[in-house]
Design a protein around this nucleic acid. Structure first.
Lengths: 402, 402
DNA sequence: GATAATTATTTCCTTGCTCGAACAATAGCG
DNA sequence: CGCTATTGTTCGAGCAAGGAAATAATTATC
């Protein structure tokens, strides 16, 4: 029963479903233009997918009055009965959830305040599984076919293992298998910065060509690196732990245990902590400050608080150094700075640009376009859902039946 | 006359010639095993190449008595009349040359002492062209079909332009075109660290799988990064300028104009200069010290000179930091440390390992195998020759006629 | 309302790559 | 002198992909 498709066919199928999910319902000719294939080949491919019930032809009448003459386009879209996918992001004390149908359309979302760190491995997985299934039940709708989960730390995507995560307090945690066991659905896990990089690149075609290094600033600092729109995978199929590169030998404390890591200057918890220290207040108990608390710090700095301005100046400098390292190492076409940390980009920018300029070769620096993408963490779930959907693509017909 | 091969055929041809050059004469079945193709397909491919005169069948008798039964293997090899390729490396005050036949066998080599920095663009290219053609004449033998040149700096391989090189004192120098014009032969240029990485990986199959970051220490410090045996290419098809990543904000002067770059601690010129300064001698006039001078410094340190030991300790620390950044950014399977600078590896190693350990996550660090490959600069010409040969592979038949 | 124009899709055919199966060639071995 | 092991060749099938032309489905225009 398991129909094994030949490799080229399979790759073509993937590309087709990718473009259809990204660009919405498309006619066969349009798919052909996107993929650089002849309409004949597209017809051939789509025939199989229509046959399997993965795709459906759009009803003729629902596009309203047609203004061009000629035979009207028949757009193809994902079948509505393919089921849904849940995307999850686990922060330090928050879980973001999102339900998406197989075409990539958002159906429901929620976020839950819940500290995860103190839990052991089994409890952690229990809590996650329960949160996810509650969300699925509340959302109702079509059955959930797969789960994608983004989390901080060094994630082995292929084997579904969180190899290292200071936030989850985990080492070699077989998270995908554990959740799969509890939920009875396939689970894909991914580093959160990689997921965000992927999601952002889905929205901007320019970022899908060439090499894109995506620095996410938020609870921590992470890097997602894309080559021709695909996530770069290292030796253990994870992303990098760029946030824990040590840039100042005797810098502030990082939650990884080291000192002077990039994120020890830029992450929300670091900025919040150092802001408290400036005011001679005790270091805060909550490691992850609220959005309001962060906004307050930024506002105070914008009002002219010199000590805080200094803090952001130094953070910007570290960001510039980090971007400089990426430029001199990876020779990227695009540098994207994203995540909640971009809320203070106006404060970071002067020192960021100065640092970047002082340590990169102009010939290399000028190749890389700097993009600042203001993005909250909920886009993350979008990214990891995309990943899960792509993983499913080859099994859609089978999953439909299940 | 220009026979355009379809893309898959072309790729298959490349792979076949690659493996034949690397593994020496091979029978069709053996090629099939290396490439994972059926003998039938290999026969089909080689038929064309034999027809064009690119390959020849080995004479039957010259393997001596056959000890296995069955139809004897007929090994295929590159035709001997395909001509040669010259590989060149330009150092600060030295030019290395090497003549190689199309099968990759070394035929002659030479090195010339010649400072290149003070020359202008035109003079530089004149000198190089003259040196190359003199070498070709002296070496005699089959006609030279192409030239591969490795040089320091940021090299755009696709367009053949040296975008930036403090050693050559060049900016946007169209070196490949200039030499092509003077020599009438196709010229391929490459960053020297990339060329060395490629050459080293040709010798060790392990380095051709997964991701290999190759740090070359010598006149300067460079990085060659390989993914599945192929050189990583950035936005402008060059490698990186990793040697000019600034690791210490107020470190020693670098020849790029900045301060605290990786190579300002590790390159021969930097170690030599700082050794002179320790002895309160004036900074040396010659920027690139001789091999003897470097050996003397190393010997003096090994004898217990504390100031020099300190110098190497600090250099090792920077090397560890550099490797740490690579590990946390690229998640490589292999880190190779190579080049003349490995002569002092015993002095660098303790602080190298301490620094590496103190700033990398164990889960990531343990993935990467550290290789120290003692290699002088002449292996470089090998690497760039390989590149040039590969560039030629599609035109071999045409070049044979020319 | 008939006809022309236009666009989408399908059908059919060709090309090119790869592989499996059958077959030829060759040499050791009993 | 068969038998067997191994290599290499030939031929045909299968498959992907593209192009030409036929077909289908509309709308604009007269």
């Amino acid at each position: 029963m398991a129909i094994t498709l030949p490799a080229p066919r399979e790759a073509a199928r993937r590309r087709l479903l990718d473009v259809l999910r990204r660009e919405g319902p498309l006619a066969r000719v349009e798919i052909g233009q996107h993929l650089g294939m002849s309409p004949a080949s597209v017809s051939d491919l789509t025939a199989g997918l229509l046959d399997e019930g993965v795709l459906v032809s759009e009803e003729a009448g629902d596009t309203g009055p047609v203004l061009i003459r000629g035979r009207p386009k028949v757009r193809l879209s994902f079948a509505s009965d393919l089921g849904c996918v849940i995307g999850v992001w686990t922060g330090f004390n928050r879980i973001e959830l999102r339900l998406v149908d197989s075409a990539g359309r958002n159906q429901a979302s929620r976020h839950v305040e819940r500290p995860l760190r103190s839990l052991g491995a089994e409890d952690l997985m229990d809590v996650l599984a329960e949160t996810i299934s509650t969300f699925a039940q509340d959302a109702g709708g079509p059955p959930v076919k797969a789960i994608g989960l983004a989390c901080q730390g060094y994630v082995d995507t292929r084997d579904g293992v969180v190899a290292w995560s200071p936030v989850l307090g985990a080492r070699d945690l077989p998270l995908a298998a554990g959740l799969n066991q509890r939920l009875g659905r396939p689970v894909v896990i991914e580093n959160d910065a990689s997921a965000m990089a992927f999601a952002i690149a889905q929205r901007d075609p320019a970022l899908r060509s060439g090499r894109t290094a995506c620095l996410m600033i938020g609870d921590g600092v992470g890097l997602g690196f894309l080559v021709q729109g695909e996530l770069y995978r290292g030796a253990r199929s994870g992303g990098s732990e760029f946030g824990h590169v040590r840039l100042r030998r005797s810098g502030p404390q990082c939650r990884c245990g080291g000192r002077g890591c990039i994120e020890a200057f830029l992450a929300d918890y670091a900025l919040h902590r150092d802001a408290q220290l400036i005011d001679h207040r005790p270091a805060p108990a909550v490691l992850i400050p609220s959005e309001d608390a962060m906004n307050a710090i930024v506002a105070q700095a914008r009002a002219g608080d010199t000590a805080l301005l200094n803090l952001f100046r130094e953070a910007g400098e570290v960001l510039g150094d980090a971007a400089g390292i990426l430029i001199q190492t990876l020779e990227p076409d695009h540098i994207v700075i994203c995540g909640p940390g971009t809320r203070a980009m106006d404060l970071l920018r002067p020192s960021f640009e100065a640092a970047l300029e002082s340590q990169t070769i102009p010939e290399l620096r000028s190749l890389a376009t700097i993009h600042v993408v203001e993005s909250s963490m909920d886009i993350l779930t979008e990214g990891v859902v995309m990943q899960a959907l792509r993983e499913m693509d080859l099994d859609l017909a089978r999953l439909k039946a299940a």
